[in-house]
Amino acid sequence: MKTIGIFFGTETGTTRLIAKKIHKKLGDEIASKPVNVNRIEMAEMLQYDVLILGTPSYGVGEIPGKSAGCLEPNWEEFLAKSGTPDFTGKRIAFFGLGAQERYSDRFASSLLRLHEVFKGFGAEIVGDWSTEGYTFAHSAAVQDGRFVGLVIDERTQGMFTNERLDAWLAQVKPLLLEKLTTPA
Rank of each mutant, 00 (worst) to 15 (best):
L114N: 10
L150Q: 09
F160Q: 07
N74A: 07
Q143P: 04
L114S: 09
F121I: 05
E163D: 12
S130W: 05
G61D: 09
I125R: 10
H138A: 10
H138L: 01
V148L: 15
W168N: 07
G122Y: 11
E62F: 03
K173P: 03
L150R: 09
S109M: 07
R102N: 14
Y48V: 00
P73K: 13
S57N: 03
F8D: 02
V60S: 07
N36V: 00
L111D: 11
R91L: 12
L175N: 07
S130K: 06
R39K: 09
F136Q: 02
A170V: 01
T182M: 14
R164K: 14
T3A: 08
S109W: 04
L175G: 06
N74Q: 12
N74T: 11
R102C: 09
L176N: 08
A170W: 03
K24C: 10
F118C: 15
F8W: 04
D128A: 07
E178H: 09
E101K: 08
F7S: 04
T55W: 01
L51G: 05
T55V: 02
R164L: 12
M45Q: 01
A93K: 02
T181L: 15
K25V: 11
S57E: 02
G149P: 12
M1F: 12
I22P: 06
D49Q: 03
D144Y: 07
S82D: 07
G69I: 11
T182H: 14
G120N: 13
S32Q: 04
Q100N: 04
I40P: 01
L165H: 11
E62V: 01
I22R: 06
K81I: 13
H115Q: 10
D153V: 13
H23R: 04
W129N: 14
G120D: 11
T10P: 03
P56C: 02
L46H: 00
E116T: 14
K81W: 07
G27Y: 11
E29A: 14
D105I: 07
S57K: 02
K90G: 09
G149I: 12
E76Q: 08
W75D: 05
C70W: 06
G9Q: 05
T156S: 15
E132H: 09
V60A: 06
N162D: 15
Y134T: 03
T15K: 03
G145M: 13
L111R: 09
E77A: 06
K66I: 15
S32K: 05
G133S: 02
D128M: 04
K2D: 15
K25L: 13
A43T: 02
I52T: 01
T161M: 13
M42I: 15
F107A: 00
L180F: 07
E101N: 10
V35N: 00
G89R: 01
C70Q: 14
A108C: 12
R164D: 13
H138E: 05
F95P: 06
R155V: 15
I52N: 00
A31N: 08
K66L: 14
M159Y: 15
T181F: 15
A170P: 00
A99I: 00
P183R: 09
H115R: 11
S130N: 02
F107V: 00
E116A: 13
E11N: 11
V151S: 14
G89F: 05
P174D: 05
F107Y: 11
